[in-house]
Design a protein around this nucleic acid. Sequence first.
DNA 1: ATAGGGTTAG
Length: 749
Amino acid sequence: MMVNDGVQPDKYLGPTILKACSMMERIEAGKMVRGYVVRKGMEEDVFVRNALIDMYANYGDLGYSERVFDTMNERDVVSWTALIVAYTSHGLVDEAIDTFSRMESDGINADLIAWNALVSGFARNGEIDLALRSLEEMQEIGLRPKNGGRINYAENIFVGVKQKSTTIWNEMIAAYPNEGNAGARMELFNSTKEAGPKPDVITYNTILAAYARDGKKNEAYELLNEMFEVGLRPNVVTFNILISGYQKSGLDHEVLKLLQAMQSPHSDSFVSQLMRKLIPPDHVTDSVVVNGALAASTDLGLSRQGKELHGYVVRNNLEYNVYVLSALVDMYSECCDMDSAAEVFWKTENRNTVMWNTTMAGYINKRKPYKAFGLFNMMQNEGLKPSPITFMILMPACGEIGALTLGKELHGCLLKCQFDRSSIHIGSALIDMFAKCGCIWEAKQVFDSQSVKVVIVWNSMILSFSAHRMIENALDLFAQMQMSGGMPDGRTFTALLSACALSGLVEEGWNYFSLMEHIYDIALTLEHYTCMVRILGSIGLLDEAVDFIKKMPFTPDACIWDTQAARALFELELDNASYYILLSNIYASTGLWDSSKSLRSLVKESQSTRIKECSCISIGSRLHSFEGGMVSCSMLDDIMVMWHELADDMRDPVYAGASKPIRVCKNLRMCVDCHTSAKLISKIVEREIFVKDSSFYHYMRNELSNDFSCKKVWFLLFNPNDNKHNLDNNCELMASRTSNEHTYDNDRT
DNA sequence: ATAGGGTTAG
């Protein structure tokens, strides 16, 4: 037959055929091959021996397997594994364990296949405990198969188990991770049904959990029906699974529906019927329901609902659950009720770091950063350690208000904390913070110190250079990014294109635009198109800009068209104060005084502090904050006196006094008047003044200003006639004065 | 014990 002396086989042939024979259960053919191997003097070959062990084991002659193994001169890991398989396939678990440990003491390390043989051997013999323990041991020594390996092992075990009990079945279903595996769980459920085991409540709950977390509520309710049909009744866990799953997948309305059903069990909805069949809620339910419902009402901005839930918390003794309380603080601060949030916070006895974080984030979002920093100090005094998230909350706030001293302190604190695997966003937050505080080179230092530069780190640095009008540095950095193999994303190009717009770099702009489209295959967004329009506009190519706009696959917005678009933007971003001012100016400039006035009062009277204009001034480590229209301030009198003195001095240049720099941060653009005043003041008092406005950084150092003039032709796209304030300049501070979106600092002293 | 909980930032 196939054994023919005329052909010269290599050393792999024998074992390969042996293996094939054993698989084909052709022991007779196998014996013939063995005779051939002996004749060829290949009997001592390790490969051959290993195959022989396997062959004999498969056909019942375990003694032969052992003899082949024992008489080997050298054994490799495959030999040992073959013997382990031989034992486990004969139900000799103890011998398999013994062989495994002999192998290790022989100095041979078990590889994945060896472990696999042991684990599935255990499983096949019903030794599930041993199998699972071995799996754990594998994990401990760091043996972990790549992608989905764990499931493979579970499947291995599951297939090996001859009599599938409901428990094993449930375990196997649960072995598929919760998220995104509803299909896999369902498939296993269906394919194992016929094999004998009866599904129980746990089987159904496990699959329901996957459906709920994937937001597949129709499938979930269908399965719930099936559960009833086979005579099973959902329990309280079923309910908890649904609520928490829906919450996680963002089905807020479904969460609230379940909540209402729970509170009014007499309604006829499907969910209410379900509830009536459940046992009463337990402590987990309370927590799940309250947290889920709180998160839902926070998302939907339902403050009344939130207050009712607070009542529920009090009535049901949940005031000692720090998770629930944090969710309450979050809910109140999202609903603009920081007083209630603070009340909950201070009433809490065992505040943890997360609770402090939540409250600090609340103050920062409500533009009371100094309150947040106060809390940060108290938190440390109470001996609580900040978490990486603490820094993610406070760092951007430092940048926002230009609090450099605080930012540096935070940086030091961060280094002391030595988080081993802190958030990948921290590096970029640090860069942002330093840049926004005017320290571009410290930002660069942080950038350089990042051992692994993820795309957001590159983006932060490029954007920082661009905001400092260091366009060349920004574009250079991108070149470095390309050279080091970094992958840019859409934001990288937004940063680059807006840098080009600042310097009127049309050619470079087009280059980046096509690079993004054709090389990096990045989806073009309205933002990218807007940047291109600004680039074209920046050197007066208005016809080209209009052509470009017409070809865009987007509806043009305010950055592109003037008044019309301003309104569109205004509708999109209700919280952005700049748009209110811009729109108000546009109304005013076109004679629509009523519209302008009503919009202005909207800004002033708005309940939302977000659209108030505000400034923070930090001198040394002290921080003062001012809001537009503010009339009570402990230092206001002093400030006004100073202001009048300065106003005089500006006309009479006799200067005196100097010390630390003054840093001013505005949430609106700085206007020409403010800019000039600030510059003069800097001269008069001989102090460096740094102003950060909503878009740029301005350094006033005595006579030097590094604000680069920029040919702002594109303001023609807005309103060429108007270059003055249209709002009252009734603010207390120069820095708080309202600015006009289309006035520019095109001056260089 | 094989199924169910959690807050903060991005």
